[in-house]
Amino acid sequence: MAGKKLSIIVFSGTVDKLMPVGILASGAAASGYEVNLFFTFWGLNAISKNGMQAQPQVDKNYEQMGPMMMKRMMDMKFPMWHQMVREAKEVGEVKVYACSTTMEFFGLKKEDLADFVDDVVGVATFLDRAEGGTTLFI
């Protein structure tokens, strides 16, 4: 039972990819998995305070479906991905990491990031935390 782990490298910053991150993280956390979320590149940009206030972006391939998707989500009262990350942290063992290199790249400091970020780390820390579990790149 113990020792099950789900780690996700969150590379993408579009809402269609961030939604599965929120769903997987909260479902896993509720089921007793240890969860590690490593936000890097566009994913990191999405958890900056500015990024979270901005209009959610949809992948270019599905852009024309964006407004319909957002409307359906509202009709279904489906929570936004960052709400699910927050809920996941409340219900289970979830750590949110920010990639230090990307922060430098975008000129972001820890205080520019969402309050649910636990730590600023690099790849070695992520690999260490993820070892022995399932890792996804989204």
């Binding site: 769903i23 909260s26 479902g27 509720a30 089921s31 279904m76 809920e87």
Partner: peptide, 14 residues
């Protein structure tokens, strides 16, 4: 009722 995955599991866990 009316909640979708992962809502029911989340709420059950809580």
């Amino acid at each position: 009722k009316g909640m979708y995955c992962p809502g029911p599991v989340m709420e059950t866990a809580k």
